[in-house]
């Protein structure tokens, strides 16, 4: 994959080329491409003058970073303790069934990436689902279809 080196340089400059901000740099790149292309890691490591292995270590350590391309919308089903107790696992299974995709993967049409998260901190609204920036509280297996449709139709 070809990456826009001009854009990557801008991001590096935003953090004054400080290598301690490598995680923030990667997160900004991910916001641009919806994932972290390997070519971008290589380029950034050259700019920050660190070995590729170190950059790759950071990229694979943090769960927020994805080396696989992601869908247009990311679904986060919360599986924090409160959500777990109030039926979160059923919600994620329902998403898997409805979208015919396993957790961690992206639908064939590239529309949705399904992920679980260990707590979004809105435990009073368990079970919680976050799609992109929008939260859905007190979800039920029966309501999952409507949530998906909201994003399907909203294209």
């Amino acid at each position: 994959m070809e990456v826009d080196t001009g854009r990557l340089n801008e991001i590096v400059q935003k953090y004054n080329g400080d290598r301690s901000y490598i995680l923030a740099i990667f997160q900004d790149i991910q916001r641009t491409y919806r994932f972290l292309p390997k070519e971008a890691i290589k380029f950034i490591c050259e700019q920050l003058d660190i070995p590729f292995s170190k950059g790759y270590e950071v990229a694979t350590f943090y769960k927020a970073l994805s080396l696989k391309p992601r869908g247009k919308h990311t679904i986060h089903v919360c599986l924090g303790t409160a959500c777990h107790l109030r039926g979160g696992p059923n919600i994620s299974e329902t998403f898997e069934r409805e979208l015919q995709v396993k957790t961690g993967d992206t639908t064939v049409d590239g529309n949705f990436t399904l992920e679980t998260v260990n707590c979004l901190g809105a435990c009073a609204l368990a079970p919680l689902v976050r799609i992109d920036e929008k939260d859905f509280g007190k979800t039920t297996p029966g309501g999952v279809k409507n949530i998906i449709n909201e994003f399907r139709n909203g294209e």
């Binding site: 400080d18 995680l23 923030a24 990667f26």
Partner: peptide, 25 residues
């Protein structure tokens, strides 16, 4: 500093390693 979704980074030394720009161990 914004974390990267790693639980262990709430541990004091891992948090510091993470701020240093490394994997947060």
């Amino acid at each position: 500093f914004r974390g990267g979704g790693a639980f262990v980074c709430g541990e004091s030394t891992a948090l510091m390693t993470s701020i240093e720009g490394k994997a947060g161990e």
